[in-house]
Design a protein around this nucleic acid. Structure first.
Length: 275
DNA sequence: AACACGCCCTGCGCGC
DNA sequence: TGCGCGCAGGGCGTGT
């Protein structure tokens, strides 16, 4: 479900709604996530701690608690973190519950269970293997063509695969990769190293623009996205190519094509995006 | 050693 | 109406 803009939206929402609140108790109802949930550690580390700051790194949600405790969460394909009144009925797939002050609950909900939810000490967080090899944040000022070109020019990957390579740039998922490629006029199968530097500059700019717009829309570009208040999105910002196979290109009216790259669908306009 | 692939899961929409 | 199939926004382990 979520790419960088959706995770960013969740983090901002959590910061607004639960920063400053205390975790009273934790209930683990399902441990079978991508990585088995360490219930005992959650029970030991979280109760009594205050939520101080919630931030995003790549597609990870990082919750800083008092006493140097950190909750690291990932939404996978279908995860949600929703804050709601504690007296509402559990939904199917509400896997981890944190009772907060003021009668609220934070619930980690994830039908496909590809997500991650764990409690860590700061030391564990800083050495966390999953976080060691993450690439650049696309929205950072310093992430520009100058900074990245030497890597891009050496890559023999199709450009779409490179855009989605989290050891290079983080947060760009299957939808926004297709969208950015469309707006830059780059074919998803173009070999990264064969682009001109100018074209790469343009593409990176489109990546930033697409992500920033989606954040500005509150992540509501994706149809079943749910923010931290449980509000679902609706298409405020229409997608140009993703999911539009056989529909007409909004620029040149040719039919949008779908191909599969590394097992994932890519959508592009054969008129606007050339190899 | 850089790639692509399969797989982890549930749910949904489609065609029959 | 029910059933099977293909597909889904992520990421990791494995094999080439």
């Amino acid at each position: 479900m979520p790419e960088l803009p959706e995770v960013e939206t969740v983090c901002r929402g959590l910061q607004q709604t639960i920063a400053g609140k205390q975790i009273k108790a934790v209930i683990v109802r399902e441990t079978r996530l991508r990585k088995p949930v360490m219930s005992e550690k959650l029970y030991r580390l979280l109760p009594g701690k205050n939520l101080q700051r919630i931030e995003r790194r790549a597609k990870y949600i990082v919750m800083h608690l008092s006493d140097s405790v950190i909750v690291l969460a990932h939404l996978g394909m279908s995860g949600q973190i929703v804050v709601q009144p504690a007296d509402e009925q559990y939904r199917k797939h509400d896997h981890i519950i944190a009772n907060l002050s003021e009668g609220l609950q934070m619930r980690f909900h994830d039908p496909r269970r590809f997500g991650l939810f764990e409690a860590l000490t700061v030391e564990e967080f800083e050495k966390h293997p999953r976080l060691q090899h993450l690439g650049l944040e696309p929205l950072d000022k310093g992430t520009d063509a100058e900074q990245t070109w030497s890597h891009v020019r050496q890559s023999k990957k199709p450009i779409k695969n490179l855009l989605m390579d989290a050891s290079f740039i983080v947060g760009v998922g299957n939808i926004y990769a297709s969208e950015a490629l469309f707006f830059a006029g780059v074919h998803p199968q173009k070999i990264a190293g064969k682009m001109s530097k100018k074209k790469w500059q343009e593409l990176l700019q489109q990546v930033k623009t697409v992500l920033a717009k989606a954040i500005a829309q509150g992540g509501t570009t994706l149809n079943d996205f749910v923010n931290s208040q449980g509000e679902s999105g609706y298409f405020q910002l229409e997608l140009a190519v993703y999911g539009r196979e056989n529909q007409t290109c909004k620029t040149c009216a040719k039919p949008i094509k779908r191909i599969v790259q590394s097992g994932r669908s890519s959508f592009y306009c054969p008129g606007c995006q050339r190899i």
